[in-house]
């Protein structure tokens, strides 16, 4: 657990840009989401991490 779970980002500070692959059930297709895209769209982002698919969230 030595490297586990330290908080690397500080509240009130800029989150570095990131991009991840997604599966979007609304369009039943794969896609990508990036923080840069969210900022360009003027949207808030809520990231909701959970341990694993096929378990409770």
């Amino acid at each position: 657990m030595s490297d586990c779970c330290e908080t690397y980002l500080k509240l009130g500070h800029q989150v570095p840009d990131f991009e991840i692959d997604t599966y979007d059930p609304t369009v039943k297709n794969f896609g990508k989401i990036s923080l840069e895209g969210q900022k360009k769209a003027g949207k808030w982002t809520i990231l909701f991490f959970y341990p694993a698919d096929f378990t409770f969230v």
Binding site: M1, S2, D3, C4, C5, E6, T7, Y8, L9, K10, L11, G12, H13, Q14, V15, P16, D17, F18, L35, Q38, K39, G42, K43, W44, T45, I46, L47, F48, F49, Y50, P51, A52
Partner: peptide, 25 residues
């Protein structure tokens, strides 16, 4: 990056983060 990765399991803990439209946490 968000400090939720557990090296011992390779899984992410239950973390929730709200980022504003300027990219501020």
């Amino acid at each position: 990056m968000f400090g939720v990765y557990d090296d011992s399991s390779g899984l992410a803990l239950r973390g929730t983060f709200i980022i504003n439209p300027s990219g501020i946490l």
